[in-house]
Design a protein around this nucleic acid. Structure first.
Length: 661
DNA sequence: TGCGGCGGCGCC
DNA sequence: AAAGGGCGCCGCCGCA
């Protein structure tokens, strides 16, 4: 039996700013109402605090194999912290909870109930009464909650409607597999453990950054006679620049265009600012302003604030930072709140962070440019608890290995042999030098950028943007020649892109027949979500392309990650399933499978997993177990699952006293 | 005043 | 025909 439920709650805590964990455990948080649906027989309950809990409802909850909610972590926390403790609902084992957002995501549908419903039905209109009610009832006004019985009754109706919408939607989706459910649970246990923030450091850094932000604003204001007061008001300054900049410098702020017919657009992004600052002819006045924007151009303040908001007030740990299958197309994890998936890599070492922390404590200067020094502090603000260390292990060049392995081709196997060779003999060089030499070049950087950027059908654009990340500046014509050389040296890849595209096309043309390309298979099911193209990965995990069809000879599908404007009746955005895109999807998805399995093994074997990042795990062992766990971590990471035979995995985990380097 | 759109930024 | 894509967050700006 499956029971679906949906809580409406109110609190003095800002849910968006502080996250569900801090929200649910705050004493001011309370339930407004909760709707329940027994999915087996359609029976419904709407419960308000103070009411007796119907006996049948208690029974249904106890007998249910699954308790479903849209964003189940939220409802589970409310249930445990409030419904059980304050109102006597029966205790439910954690294993019962199932998240229907996770179900949306593995179906490659948008996560929000409204967006997913719109995606399935273009005529569906968002019900704005819900958000209006939430504004009125869920947050206090002047310290007081609105308890108007009419509004609360409306909220109850809305709540019941939401549960029905959820049931309706999930009935049209592929159910979560047992492995999906297991891995959602594993991710939640990691979220439960949380990760510790150095509260003192975050507080000091936040204050320092706020002060610096004001100072930069003051300087800007002086330079512009009050026209621009914040380093983030780039659009305003861009307008000024468009008027004042000499014609010969305008190219610096023009966005690169794909086609000559595209309209000219302007930007003052990092690259544009860099170009301007290199120009001799730039007026000193403009130079001063742009330099200020350049130095202040990051959001350090807010990130430290975000950490502090989300940290548990007693333990300092941030919970709920990881989202299972947050990236629906590939089912990779994503991260939110304390966003551990996009923290600046170029950061202070633990020792440097310690010195800077001491300086801030004493009110001394921390060096210039201040915002940069602070941005480098974000990562090391995440710390192991006292008496613990971090072990961080990441798989070496995982995607560059998985792609050739998936191609199951002689050329791909040669690449894998090469990985094995350098794994065993690191002193003889590495894959990047070897790749450069394939292309008759001796530049390791070029080899590295090529390996990292060209595997998925990208050309000059992909190469150049990756090159920029590694600080390599080259001309387009040179980039084009590298692309050609790499493709000639790796014909297996080019061939594989074509095979994937062809297999997907044949699958859609002939529903319910299986078409293989390398180690993956495609099959089209017309009955699911307007026709879903499945890609079956080597471990039988499937990734999905809903609303797939053939347009002018190409397979296209719904693009869940882009939402049309709200209330628009346009068809949902679509994407073309070309070879490079398919290659990228299966590579990232297979890598995600490796991580899911690793995390499951580690959590089930009681490793203290506190975080992960696509190809990386973070453990928080006691000091005394570090040596043993370091070795175990490596052997877990390098042990290939049964389904991935022939894939060489390499990981050399390291010990840290702060997150970073 | 609050919301959504959008540009910008960082990571894998 | 050619093609790099996937995330989440911050802040401004225009709109209601």
């Amino acid at each position: 039996m499956i029971v679906g439920l949906d809580f409406e709650t109110r609190s003095e805590v800002d849910l968006k700013a502080c996250g569900a964990d801090v929200y649910a455990s705050d004493p001011s948080t309370d339930i407004i109402c909760c709707s329940f649906i027994n999915k087996d027989n359609g029976q419904e309950w709407l419960w308000y605090p103070g009411q007796k809990i119907p006996h049948e409802l208690i029974l249904a909850l106890q007998l249910a194999t699954d308790v479903e909610a849209h964003n189940a972590r939220f409802d589970e926390l409310i249930y445990e912290c409030i419904a059980v403790s304050d109102y006597g609902f029966p205790i439910l084992p954690k294993e019962k909870w199932v998240c229907t957002i996770a179900q949306c995501r593995v179906n490659a549908m948008p996560a929000s109930l409204d967006a997913a419903t719109r995606a399935a039905d273009a005529k569906h209109k968002k019900d704005h009464t819900g958000s209006a009610l939430i504004r009125k009832l869920c947050v206090p006004k002047d310290g007081v909650f609105n308890t108007d019985p009419t509004l609360i009754a409306k909220m109850g109706k809305y709540c019941m409607k939401d549960s029905r919408a959820m049931v309706g939607l999930t009935n049209t989706l592929r159910p979560l597999s047992d492995i999906d459910k297991r891995d959602w649970q594993i991710n939640e246990r990691i979220n439960d453990r949380g990760i510790l923030v150095d509260i003192e450091l975050a507080t000091l850094a936040q204050a320092y950054a706020a002060q610096e932000k004001d100072e930069l604003g003051r300087q800007l204001s002086n330079l512009t006679d009050g026209a621009i007061t914040k380093v983030t008001q780039t659009t305003k300054f861009l307008k000024v620049l468009k008027e004042e900049l000499p014609a010969e410098l305008m190219h610096c702020v023009q966005k690169p265009r794909k086609a000559a017919s595209d309209p000219v657009k302007y930007t003052l992004d990092k690259a544009a600012r860099g170009l301007l600052l290199e120009e001799e002819g730039l007026e000193p006045h403009h130079r001063d302003i742009i330099t200020l924007i350049h130095e202040g151009g990051n959001s350090s303040v807010s990130k430290f604030t975000a950490m502090l908001n989300r940290a548990d007030p007693i333990t300092g740990r941030v919970h709920g930072a990881f989202i299972f299958a947050g990236a629906g197309q590939t089912q990779r994890y994503s991260s939110k709140g304390l966003q551990l998936h996009n923290m600046r890599r170029d950061c202070h070492s633990a020792d440097e962070a310690e010195i800077l922390k001491a300086k801030m404590r004493r009110g001394e200067s921390i060096g210039e440019p201040v915002m940069d020094v602070l941005a480098k502090m974000l990562r090391p603000t995440v710390v192991p608890a006292k008496g613990h260390k971090f072990i961080v292990g990441d798989w070496s060049a995982i995607e560059a290995r998985v792609l050739p392995w998936l191609s199951d081709s002689p050329g791909g196997r040669k690449v894998l042999d090469r990985f094995r060779h350098y794994d065993a003999n690191p002193e003889k060089g590495d894959i990047y030098t070897a790749t450069a030499s394939d292309m008759s070049m001796d530049d390791r950087q070029i080899g590295k950028v090529a390996v990292l950027s060209l595997g998925f059908g990208g050309a000059v654009g992909a190469f150049q943007s990756m090159a920029k990340n590694y600080g390599v500046t080259i001309s387009d014509s040179y980039a084009l020649s590298v692309v050609g050389k790499w493709r000639r040296a790796n014909p297996w890849a080019v061939k594989f892109w074509g095979e994937l595209e062809k297999a997907a096309l044949k699958a859609v043309r002939r529903p319910r027949t299986v078409h293989a390309a390398g180690r993956v298979k495609y099959v089209f099911t017309p009955e699911l979500l307007g026709g879903t193209l499945f890609c079956i990965l080597p471990n039988d995990t499937v990734i999905q392309y809903p609303y797939a069809r053939i347009d002018r000879g190409n397979v296209t599908a719904m693009k869940a990650s882009v939402q049309p404007k709200s209330d628009s009746e346009d068809e949902w955005p679509r994407m073309s399933l070309w070879g490079g895109f398919l290659a990228e999807n299966i590579t990232q998805a297979s890598s995600a499978c490796l991580l899911r399995e690793l995390l499951a093994d580690m959590v089930e074997d009681e490793f203290p997993v506190v975080g992960h990042c696509h190809d990386e795990v973070i453990l928080e062992p006691h000091d005394y177990e570090v040596d043993v766990m370091l070795e175990e971590c490596q052997s877990y990471m390098e042990a290939c699952p049964e389904w991935a035979k022939g894939l060489p995995l390499r990981a050399v985990p390291e010990v840290f006293t702060r997150y970073g380097k």
